[in-house]
Design a protein around this nucleic acid. Structure first.
Lengths: 220, 220
DNA sequence: CTCTTACGCTACGACCCGTAGCGTAACTCC
DNA sequence: GGAGTTACGCTACGGGTCGTAGCGTAAGAG
């Protein structure tokens, strides 16, 4: 749950348990999860453009007005629905930086094979080019949250001695951003724009390129 | 013009000059250019989701039915409209591989600053996740055509002695694809997903990473 | 001058949008 | 308990887009 409804919901979550400080009937938490699940189902069946609020409300067993009471529109709804998918990504220690990278790339590729993730991610980004608020929402709900993987992988590599420690915080942040964009961007482009398979062979080649890029300067 | 109308248009183009072998009144070439230009204008003003066929026809001074006679729908129309933008990319010889890369990255970033390119590219890719024909169209109209830049830059670098010659054709093709996805994907992700500026500072860092990635193996 | 095709225009049923209004349900505070 | 407050389901609505059909006219080819 990313909590960015148009209505109150001041604190963090909107469950039945959390009274959110107010009086009156609380929002149904079950409805939230049902709606988001219904949204993903609809994305699988219909794709982005043919997905309609009416259809989602029917699938979720909820009145259409309830959707509009919680989300401003299709865009916001879908961002929240997809953000949950990305949270499933993780990075177990595979023993080396190279293995860690290959693992996360393959995992990300698996995610992008899911039709609801493919169509929704691109569509929402497309809409965000004309909507500042939506851009911020994507950044906080997806981008910033997944950067944790890069940070974690890097720290591990430094602990292993594979990468040097960097003292400058600003530089560290920039490098993290760069690596994130390179990995996520390349995989997305390969899978969705070029429409080529992200198989182990390709991943190995890509990872090799990236490894050399990361280790290049000091060894030269 | 990418020529993939739903109707005849057998050969290549649909200009007044090219009789396209048939008798009868030929399609107006002026209408084609007017429609595609109107589509880009509408993308600037309205973005993808609010762009409507009716609006485009009005802007182009053309009947709505004429649009549907030439394009199957919004998706196909927009692909053709945007493909023309990408053809403006070029790669003058900047003297070194590094400079060539930086130049093309900055040029691509400029293109992605144009609102019609931003919104349309992502939206069309989103739709293509559920439409095989559209995927093929994107590949032939945009992806394959822009790979020429990678091929050209690589040949130049080889002529300069910056990169080794590769004999295996299959491997050459794979490397070309990889570099293309890395460059285009990373820039798109940085600009549109992460919503961070693609300035000269960032480009220099990215190019350095890529250079080390390309030169890594042999120098190690 | 005839044949063939493209064009512009109008009209159409179908669908979705986003909102308003109402009565009811659920929960808090007194 | 009741009063107050908020969420919910339902219905109905005007406004807009969709994609197509039908018709008369315009523009080249032979």
């Amino acid at each position: 749950m990313v909590s960015a409804m148009r209505n109150p919901s001041p604190g963090h979550d909107t469950t039945t348990g959390a009274t959110h400080g107010r009086t009156g009937r609380p929002r149904s938490a079950a409805a939230d999860t049902a709606i988001l699940a219904a949204t993903r189902d609809a994305l699988v069946d219909l794709g982005w453009s043919k997905l309609t609020m009416s259809d989602v409300s029917a699938r979720a067993g909820v009145a259409k007005t309830t959707l509009y009471r919680r989300w401003a529109g299709k865009n916001e709804l879908v961002v929240d629905a997809v953000a949950e998918l990305f949270d499933a990504l993780e990075l177990p220690d595979r023993g080396s930086l190279e293995a860690d990278i290959e693992y996360v790339v393959l995992q990300f590729a698996d995610l992008l094979r899911r039709p609801e993730a493919r169509t929704a991610l691109m569509a929402v980004v497309a809409e965000s080019t004309r909507d500042e608020a939506l851009r911020d929402r994507i950044r906080s709900a997806i981008v910033d949250r997944q950067k944790r993987l890069v940070v974690l992988g890097r720290e591990r590599a430094q602990a292993r001695g594979e990468l040097p420690y960097e003292e400058d915080e600003v530089l560290t942040g920039r490098t993290t951003d760069l690596i994130f964009d390179v990995i996520a961007g390349t995989v997305v482009h390969r899978a969705l724009v070029s429409s080529e398979p992200v198989d182990e062979c390709w991943v190995a080649t890509f990872t090799a390129l990236l490894m050399h890029g990361l280790l290049g300067p000091p060894q030269a």
